[in-house]
Design a protein around this nucleic acid. Structure first.
Length: 415
RNA sequence: CGGGGCGUAGUAUACCGGUAGUACGCGUGCUUUGGGAGCACGUAGACCGAGUUCGAUUCUCGGCGCCCCGACCA
C-alpha cells in the first residue's frame, strides 16, 4: 500500500489521556482510535495486525478440530435467565428495546452455543464437538484501563467444547492447552500457564496463559527452573520459597497479563438448558463442557507492551501489518522515485506485503515513522543506494542493515 | 463503586478576573532534502449548565468526560 494513500498518519505527541505504552504507541502510529474509555476503533494498520493475530488463532483452533461459527452478540434475555446469568453476571450489559423487550450484549457465549449444540447433538456419536468464533465481546467493567488491555468492548476468540464424559474432556483440554502455547509462540510471546481460580464460571481450577508485563493486572509466582507457575490468588507459597514442583528453583513474583484461559465448565450449562444425548446404553446423559478464550485485542496490546522500544513498536513478522516498509528517499530526484516505484511493483508482483512510503517527506520524518510503525524490514531506496546498485535493508529489531542487489531482493526477503 | 488528578485549536501545551500565546499539524509560496527542515503568510481553540461579578476561559457549585490507585473482574 502506498503510504500517501493511507488515510491515517502518525502523531508526534503522546495522547495526554493515555499512559500505558500500548495505547500511546498504537494511537501515535495510527493503528487505533479511541472512542471512549475502554472502546477503540481499529484503523487500517491496526486491523491488519488484528487479522493476522486472528488468522494464527484460527489455524490453531482448526488444527484441534474446532469449527468456526459466528454467533449473535445481541442475546435474548431468556437464555441468560435460564442460566441465572441475568442476575449473577455483573458485567453483563443489559439493554431494552423500544417495546421494552430485554436483551443482553454478549459478554461470553455459553448461553448461545449451548442451545445451538443441543439442537444438533442427539447421540454420543455426535460427540465431541468444538465450536469457536472470533468477535466482539461486551463487558460492563467498572473501570476500563490500560489502553486495549481491558476494555468494555474487545475482541475475543471463544471456543466451546462438548464431551460424552469427563475423561474425553480432559483429553481435549490438554490438546487445547498445547494449541494455545503455539498461538502465543507464533505471536512472538513467551506465555506461562498458571493455575487460577475458576471465577464465576466454575468452582474448579482454571488455567490462565500469562505473559510477563507490568501492564498486566495479575501477580503470578513462577519458578525460574521449571514450568511451575500460579496466580497469587490461589498460591499456597510466597516469593522466595523453593518451587514445590521441581524442588530446585526459587519462586519469583511478577506482574503478568492474562492473554488466554481455559475453563472446565462441567455440566452446568447443559443442565440449565436440559441438554442431554443418548449414550451407547440408550440412556440420556448430560454432556461435559469446556470453554477456551483468547483476548485478541488484549493480545495485540500485550505484544506492543513486550515488543517495543523507545522509538516505537517492533512487530514480530508473524503479526506485522506489512512484511516490509519500503521508504523512498528521493529528495526530488525523479530517477530515485522511478526506482522506488519499480521496487514497489516488484514486491507487489511477488506477493510481498509492503507499505510504500512514497510521501514527499524528509528522510528523518520517514525513518521516525517507520520506527514507530514497527514493520520488521525497512527497505530504503535513495540516491546513495541507487548509485551503490542495491537496496538498503534494515532490521527493525536490531537495527542491522545490509545492501541487497535489486535482482536478489525478493529472494532475500523470503529467507 | 471509594480515593486522587485533569478537561484550552486536529495533537501537545502556556498564560490570564478585562474574550487567549507557543509548538507540531493543515493550506499557499520560496528554499531545502539519509534521522521528525527554514522563512513568510494563512487556518484553527476555552466540555456543558448554574452562580458570584460591571465583566468568567480563569473563582464557586453541579453535571458530563478522561486518566491513575484501590476494589471488582463473565
Amino acid at each position: 500500500m502506498r503510504q500517501s494513500k493511507l488515510f491515517t498518519s502518525t502523531r508526534r505527541n503522546a495522547p495526554k489521556d493515555e499512559v500505558v505504552r500500548n495505547a500511546e504507541l498504537l494511537i501515535r502510529g495510527g493503528f487505533i482510535h479511541k472512542e471512549m474509555a475502554g472502546v477503540y476503533s481499529y484503523l487500517p494498520l491496526g486491523l491488519r495486525v488484528l487479522h493476522k493475530i486472528e488468522q494464527i488463532i484460527r489455524e490453531e483452533m482448526d488444527a484441534v478440530g474446532g469449527q468456526e461459527v459466528r454467533m449473535a452478540t445481541l442475546h435474548p434475555s431468556d437464555n441468560w435467565k435460564k442460566t441465572g446469568g441475568w442476575s449473577s453476571v455483573d458485567v453483563l450489559f443489559k439493554i431494552q428495546s423500544r417495546t421494552e423487550k430485554e436483551y443482553a450484549l454478549g459478554s461470553s457465549e455459553e448461553e448461545i452455543v449451548t442451545p445451538i449444540a443441543q439442537e444438533y447433538i442427539g447421540s454420543y456419536k455426535d460427540l465431541p464437538l468444538a465450536v469457536y468464533q472470533i468477535e466482539q465481546k461486551y463487558r460492563d467493567e467498572l473501570r476500563a484501563k490500560s489502553g486495549i488491555m481491558r476494555g468494555r468492548e474487545f475482541g475475543m476468540k471463544d471456543m466451546y467444547s462438548f464431551h460424552a464424559d469427563q475423561k474425553d474432556f480432559e483429553r481435549f483440554y490438554e490438546t487445547v492447552k498445547q494449541a494455545y502455547f503455539k498461538v502465543f509462540e507464533r505471536c512472538g510471546l513467551d506465555a506461562k500457564v498458571t493455575e487460577a481460580s475458576g471465577g464465576a464460571f466454575s468452582n474448579k481450577l482454571s488455567y490462565e496463559f500469562m505473559v510477563l508485563t507490568d501492564a498486566g493486572e495479575d501477580d503470578i509466582l513462577y519458578c525460574g527452573q521449571c514450568t511451575h507457575c500460579v496466580n497469587v490468588e490461589v498460591a499456597k507459597h510466597a516469593a522466595g520459597d523453593t518451587c514445590p514442583k521441581c524442588g530446585k528453583g526459587k519462586l519469583k513474583k511478577a506482574r503478568a497479563a492474562e492473554v488466554g484461559n481455559v475453563f472446565d465448565l462441567g455440566q452446568r450449562y447443559p443442565k440449565s438448558f436440559g441438554f442431554t444425548f443418548k449414550d451407547k446404553d440408550g440412556k440420556d446423559k448430560t454432556p461435559v463442557m469446556g470453554c477456551y478464550g483468547i483476548g485478541t485485542t488484549r493480545l495485540m496490546g500485550t505484544i506492543v507492551e513486550v515488543l517495543s522500544d523507545d522509538k516505537g513498536i517492533v512487530w514480530p513478522a508473524t503479526v506485522a501489518p506489512f512484511s516490509v516498509h519500503l521508504v523512498a528517499i528521493a529528495g526530488g530526484n525523479a530517477d530515485v522515485t522511478a526506482e522506488a516505484d519499480r521496487v514497489y511493483e516488484l514486491l507487489c508482483e511477488n506477493g510481498i506485503p509492503a507499505l510504500y512510503d512514497d510521501r514527499d517527506e524528509r528522510a528523518g520524518a520517514k525513518f521516525a515513522d517507520a520506527d514507530l510503525i514497527g514493520i520488521p524490514k525497512r527497505l530504503v531506496v535513495s540516491e546513495k543506494t541507487v548509485s551503490a546498485g542495491g537496496i538498503e535493508v534494515t532490521d527493525r529489531s536490531n537495527g542491522s542493515s545490509t545492501l541487497v542487489a535489486d535482482s536478489a531482493i525478493v529472494e532475500h526477503l523470503r529467507m
